[in-house]
Design a protein around this nucleic acid. Structure first.
Lengths: 232, 232
DNA sequence: AATATAAAAGTATTATTTACTTTTAAAGCA
DNA sequence: TGCTTTAAAAGTAAATAATACTTTTATATT
């Protein structure tokens, strides 16, 4: 252990954890990965993925560590959401938790790993009651995901390499829980010039077929303004 | 000390602090309150207001406690910004800090209290280098203040009871570091119907005089959409 | 009474959003 | 072969909002 000038304040040390709201997209549905809690209190109940923040580790590193242990994935999109610190929030003791949300492609994960952990994907509507304040954390993560999605076109981490505009629109329908107008959505998205049209078409959804698109490489400072004035 | 089911994880306990970016508005300038640090390391250097998070206290309570000790104010607007946790961020030891920004009326504070703490108001341009990552915290707080100001009309906590539209516009000019068009700003603000015009005029700035306005009581769910499409 | 000032109101142009309708490409039949 | 069906893709017209201005107004000062 390295010397620490704050050792005189040992009294003030606190339990700090991270909790991850894991979003995925599959079968035209935005889904959320939840776990059966492995330790007391509330052992066996549904919970977000969490873990202690180790010494000499940032909270983001801690979140990546627990996510990697679980999914085997290395390059996961993470955004910090909020820190919850009500001393009563966890009946097991006063724990400060830093919340992140993660976006992952569902087909990428090693599903056998997930089963070992008693994990399960739920749609937003089917989500069961979670332990402690975790349902509030989910709400907060969803708010933040919506905010982000209204400033940039999200999907790089949720959709496969190539996808149709209809599929992207469906993702946005799911995130905002509303129906975007197909024509207007297409017009708006294409006007942003962040997608590149491929020559290949997806013929499974219509007779005419829908062009596949992929994301152009990310530009610096691409999105400074809200994209949709009234999406939220 | 109450019993704690997590006692077996004592090893994992961490130092947790709060840091406050304190915004005020005075003489047509957005200002920031900074302090001469009272403890080692970097004792005497400019720093944000901070403090340890005590047991049985939320981070927001901790922020209110240090702000109240300093200013005597009870009802301070606070918004949580971000949690910084790089183990190397504080050379004195690995400390996780939860950042808040506060909005206060400069004339309200007991300035003698401030002097005891070696505090000083700086404009954004004049802000000196701060310790550790505190300049980054300031940037982050400013970003968050801008985001909030683009979703609701801020000023309840920064302006006096009654104020002119010009004064509110000047505050927005300061926050976004740009010049809003006087006519268009007025039109936009009044269309939101959050201000109430008083009969009294401020005659100090023009021959015609400018009506004073005050905020109407806050409505629930008033602002769901960005107010200014391109303010950021 | 004339002048000067910034407030307040007004206006015209352009851009964006919204709610639609029409056309199109290709598959699957008759 | 050519008719039908489908959702994609393109197009359109009206309403709303943003922007860059100009004009009018109320009142203290000269």
């Amino acid at each position: 252990m390295n010397t620490n000038i704050y050792d005189q304040y040992q009294e003030n040390k606190r339990f700090v954890s991270v909790d991850c709201v894991i979003f995925g997209y599959e079968e035209e549905k935005l889904k959320l990965l939840v776990f059966q809690r492995a330790i007391e209190p509330a052992k066996g109940e549904w919970s977000l993925l969490g873990g202690w923040v180790n010494h000499n580790e940032s909270t983001e590193d801690a979140a990546r560590r627990v996510l990697n242990k679980l999914t085997g994935l290395q390059d996961i999109f993470l955004e910090q959401v909020h820190t919850f610190s009500d001393p009563e929030r966890d009946p097991g003791g006063s724990v400060i938790t830093v919340e992140y949300y993660a976006l992952i492609k569902i087909d990428e994960k090693a599903s056998n790993l997930l089963e070992d952990y008693g994990a399960k994907w739920y749609t937003l509507e089917e989500l069961p009651p979670l332990i402690f304040d975790h349902n509030i954390l989910v709400e907060k993560a969803l708010e933040r995901l919506r905010l982000r999605s209204s400033y940039e076109i999200i999907g790089r981490k949720l959709l496969p390499e190539k996808f149709t505009i209809t599929r992207l629109r469906n993702l946005y329908d799911q995130i905002f829980q509303k129906q975007f107008d197909p024509g207007n959505f297409r017009k708006k998205i294409l006007s942003l010039k962040v997608l590149e049209r491929l020559e290949e078409k997806d013929m499974s959804e219509s007779k005419k077929g829908a062009y596949y698109f992929k994301f152009k490489p990310k530009q610096e400072g691409e999105f400074n303004h809200p994209i949709f004035k009234r999406s939220i």
